[in-house]
């Protein structure tokens, strides 16, 4: 059974701050959704391997050939803050 402590832990892992109201709401939602998700246990998968993909493709590779890199100004253009050369963060962050 999912508890509010679970939700708080999961929110931490997901880098989300939840308000008290959100904790209550998501705990309720998750109880319902997870019990719905549990229905998959009714499927017999003894003989089934896991499929990460719908298609059975493998070995998709790229040649080791240099392509021109991107214009830095454009790469930085959506950043909340930069020094013109690099993405920047306030303070020394640890």
């Amino acid at each position: 059974m999912i508890t509010r402590e679970d939700i708080k832990h999961i929110a931490d892992l997901s880098m989300l701050n939840l308000s008290e109201d959100e904790i209550v709401k998501y705990t309720e939602n998750m109880k319902e959704i997870v019990s719905f998700a549990n229905t998959i246990n009714e499927v017999d998968t003894k003989n089934a391997t896991e499929s990460a993909f719908a298609l059975d493709t493998y070995n998709v590779f790229r040649k080791d050939e240099v392509k021109e890199s991107f214009n830095r100004e454009i790469l930085l253009s959506n950043a909340p803050s930069t020094n013109g050369e690099a993405f920047s963060l306030p303070g020394m962050m640890n």
């Binding site: 690099a86 993405f87 920047s88 962050m93």
Partner: peptide
């Protein structure tokens, strides 16, 4: 790479 930004005291990110 994270580099200390001596100018602003912030952190710069170089990919």
């Amino acid at each position: 790479k994270l580099v200390h930004d001596g100018y602003t005291g912030g952190t710069l990110v170089d990919f």
